[in-house]
Write a protein that binds this DNA or RNA. Structure first.
Length: 120
DNA sequence: AACTTGACTTCAA
DNA sequence: ATTGAAGCCAAGT
């Protein structure tokens, strides 16, 4: 494990952890937010490698086209769709309305997110 | 040192 | 609206 990839993953996790329930973000959006603009593909890798103890809301990361990235007939897809539904994210014809559900990140001094407490 | 593989994106038909 | 090609880049063979 090279050190820069550890850094990449950590930045990705920090971003994903801040996506509020009921909203979604694309892999590319997270990559940009994390500071690695061209690494959309690696965001998925990072999520797959994330320790479960982190309790990451991985289901809130989807494709830029508003679709869940897993194959539609896979268990993974079903699991993610179920979690999103539980959070109120509507999937119509396999597609999520980004206009409505895309997370709009804005620097907010009032945010109560504590990155230093996120990684135990 | 090639070549392949993805939970990706964008753009042009 | 769909589809496909091209671009992307770290990991694994």
């Amino acid at each position: 494990m090279t050190s820069h990839m550890e850094y990449f993953r950590q930045q990705v996790y920090l971003c994903v952890a801040q996506i509020p329930a009921g909203k979604v973000a694309s892999y590319g959006q997270i990559a940009r937010l994390a500071g690695f603009p061209r690494h959309a593909r690696h965001v998925s890798k990072a999520l797959g490698a994330a320790d479960k103890s982190l309790q990451l809301p991985w289901q809130r990361v989807i494709g830029a086209n508003g679709r869940i990235a897993f194959k539609a007939d896979s268990d993974h897809y079903a699991r993610q769709a179920a979690l999103l539904k539980k959070e109120g994210v509507k999937i119509i014809n396999g597609k999520i309305n980004m206009q409505q559900f895309a997370w709009q990140y804005v620097k907010d001094k009032q945010s109560d997110f504590r990155p230093e407490e996120f990684f135990k």
